[in-house]
């Protein structure tokens, strides 16, 4: 079956219920991260909003300890610490959020790649699958 290029048009999605804290899977079904927050278009504060203006959209899924930590304990993580996955990569929202790209191409999985290359890879036998 050919995967969808993006989620079904017209579908309604309640973001907290159906996106936050969901597992993110890459195009091969490999777990990447969980969704710790969602970045939406900036809404200006303290000004009258134009009812005819375009409504905000989801721009990125966010992950990482900085985002999760401030969500749990308060505060706001600096944007430089947001690990983003572009919404345009999302193909399906179900029990998991599915992407059209592979984990290796995402900034969000850099810690896993770093540990693989710098720690696990230096252990004898650490560069191949178990026999």
């Amino acid at each position: 079956m050919i995967p969808r290029p993006h989620p079904e048009p017209g579908r309604l999605v309640d973001a907290e219920f159906q996106v936050l804290d969901r597992q993110v899977l890459d195009r091969n079904g490999e777990p990447v991260v969980t969704v710790d927050d969602v970045e939406i278009t900036d809404i200006p504060r303290g000004v009258e909003l134009d009812p005819d203006a375009d409504a905000p959209v989801i721009e990125n899924l966010l992950s990482g300890s900085a985002v999760l930590g401030t969500r749990l304990f308060g505060g706001r993580p600096p944007e430089s610490r947001w690990q983003r996955i572009r919404w345009s990569h999302v193909t399906e929202i179900g029990t998991a959020v599915e992407l059209n790209t592979t984990a290796d191409r995402l900034d969000a999985s850099w810690t896993e790649r770093w540990v693989r290359n710098h720690l696990i890879g230096r252990i004898p036998g650490g560069r191949h699958a178990p026999d």
Partner: peptide, 20 residues
Amino acid sequence: VVDARFRIDAQGGARLVGLI
């Protein structure tokens, strides 16, 4: 606010419909 409802558009974008 307990949730935010988005609608998927024809290009796959998720645009805010409203707030619950």
